[in-house]
Amino acid sequence: MRHPIPDGTGSRRLGPADAGELLTLQRAAYATEAQLYDDPRLPALTQTLDDLRAELAHPALGLFAGHRLVASVRWRIDGGTARIGRLVVAPDRQGLGLGTALLRAAEQASGAHRFALFTGHRSEGNLRLYEREGYRRVRREVLRPGVELVHLEKEGSRSRQAHPVEVPRAL
């Protein structure tokens, strides 16, 4: 399968050998999320290295600035639906379009026509991104008091997803 982000941009598939660096990125990115909820027990912050290695058996894509992993996204296919998760961008690289580029890349690489993801109810930036990309809210789920997940879905077409994804030059 052709890589959804043009060559030479510092992007590549991630695997179990990348778990340590990815865990570091994930914790940095989710630290700001934890502040929104005043809860350091968010699953992304409590995930173990071994759990993350196992999760990397599913597809994952990373963007690199030099040798530094600055953004990543993971997904799995479930009954024809691409379940996109853990879209993370390093705090010092947020707002540059990397999250949008990776979301589009995951959609394209998945080959799916239907996409699903979730984010926290107070994660307004994430909700704006997903809704701007055509996702619609379908339900809410209480994770624990004070933390709710907003589930979003999107129907897509391969023709729309087939266009190359441009990675911002700020990488």
Score class of each variant (00 low, 15 high):
residue 60 A to P: 05
residue 94 Q to P: 06
residue 124 E to A: 14
residue 24 T to E: 14
residue 166 E to N: 05
residue 169 R to K: 10
residue 24 T to W: 06
residue 82 A to M: 07
residue 134 G to W: 00
residue 14 L to H: 08
residue 70 V to S: 05
residue 138 V to W: 05
residue 118 F to S: 08
residue 76 R to C: 07
residue 37 Y to S: 07
residue 26 Q to H: 08
residue 22 L to R: 03
residue 23 L to I: 02
residue 19 A to Y: 00
residue 129 L to K: 09
residue 1 M to I: 06
residue 165 V to R: 00
residue 126 N to D: 13
residue 106 A to F: 07
residue 86 R to L: 07
residue 64 F to M: 09
residue 109 A to S: 15
residue 72 S to P: 04
residue 54 A to M: 05
residue 108 Q to C: 14
residue 156 G to R: 01
residue 26 Q to V: 10
residue 135 Y to L: 01
residue 151 H to V: 13
residue 113 H to K: 12
residue 46 T to F: 06
residue 44 A to S: 15
residue 159 S to M: 08
residue 39 D to M: 02
residue 66 G to Q: 09
residue 50 D to W: 01
residue 30 Y to E: 10
residue 12 R to D: 02
residue 77 I to S: 15
residue 101 A to E: 01
residue 120 G to N: 07
residue 116 A to C: 11
residue 15 G to M: 04
residue 67 H to T: 14
residue 34 A to K: 09
residue 26 Q to M: 14
residue 110 S to W: 00
residue 17 A to K: 12
residue 44 A to P: 14
residue 94 Q to E: 10
residue 166 E to S: 13
residue 117 L to D: 00
residue 166 E to C: 08
residue 99 G to R: 00
residue 37 Y to G: 03
residue 115 F to N: 00
residue 35 Q to T: 10
residue 118 F to E: 10
residue 125 G to P: 09
residue 67 H to S: 15
residue 163 H to K: 11
